[in-house]
Write a protein that binds this DNA or RNA. Structure first.
Lengths: 132, 132
DNA sequence: ATATACCCTGGAGCTTGCTCCAAGTCAAGG
DNA sequence: CCTTGACTTGGAGCAAGCTCCAGGGTATAT
């Protein structure tokens, strides 16, 4: 698969794919004898995993470390697992935080719903600003 | 309340608090006659709300717009509500995406659990790389 | 009054994560 | 062979969101 095809399939720009490889977020991609990237299935899977974890806000640094360890083979399994556990914890934390913010947002929206079209709005708004 | 106290209470740097006011993410904070910020309850509430929504990844731009509208009074309620609805939708989307990534991460971790301490690790790792 | 600690503004600098570009190479059609 | 278009690298540029700093004002204690 060429970089353009992978780019299209996973909706990641070719520049970003090259960038990811450059910084070690994905392992070196196989090349044709002419030096052109030729993504195999393993490379594609890696791209897809990284896209997924990056979308969740996992820091590139942690993923780079994970990728580097994976390339060093078997003996690094425990370390790799530790990274995943750490990232899972952080991700769970972020999700919980976002859930709280969502609740907060819902309450704000409910308040707007209740006051819609009512002439006392301004007073309530002032109250809102003053005590909650 | 001085900026240092607010900074401590909400765990936001004084620089960031000034920055937020500068860009209009929070409305102008009351000042002493000497020109020093003196946060009142309304200002603190605003800080707290913005901290919450920012932590959830809501774009500063949308929050700035919301704050600007709020300062224009009553007539902007519908617009403010529209912003919140839009941001809620985006937030729900991000949470769902992160939940998927979490599931993915959990599967990866389970795989490490299953293979822990087993000599066939390397083979499975290769299989993993090749087909899953 | 002067030392010390905190506050002010405006603007420059930094980090993360891309994104774009120049100059050159590779590959497939005519 | 030559054109056309996609691919290559290294490095510069960019956007968001802070973070830091110089130069100066304020406030409180001695």
């Amino acid at each position: 698969m060429t970089i353009a095809e992978v780019s299209k399939q996973y909706d990641i720009s070719a520049d970003t794919l090259r960038y990811y490889e450059r910084i070690g977020l994905i392992p070196p991609v196989p090349r044709t004898q002419g030096g052109i990237r030729d993504y195999d299935e393993a490379a594609c899977k890696w791209v897809e995993l990284m896209k997924c974890l990056r979308a969740a806000g996992v820091q590139i640094e942690a993923l780079v470390e994970y990728t580097a360890l994976a390339q060093q083979g078997d003996s690094t399994q425990a370390q790799r697992k530790a990274i995943l556990l750490e990232q899972r914890e952080q991700l769970e934390g972020r999700i919980a935080e976002m859930q709280q913010s969502l609740d907060r947002l819902n309450k704000k929206i409910e308040w707007y719903d209740r006051c819609e079209g009512c002439t006392i709005n301004r007073i309530r708004e002032l109250e809102q600003q003053r005590k909650g």
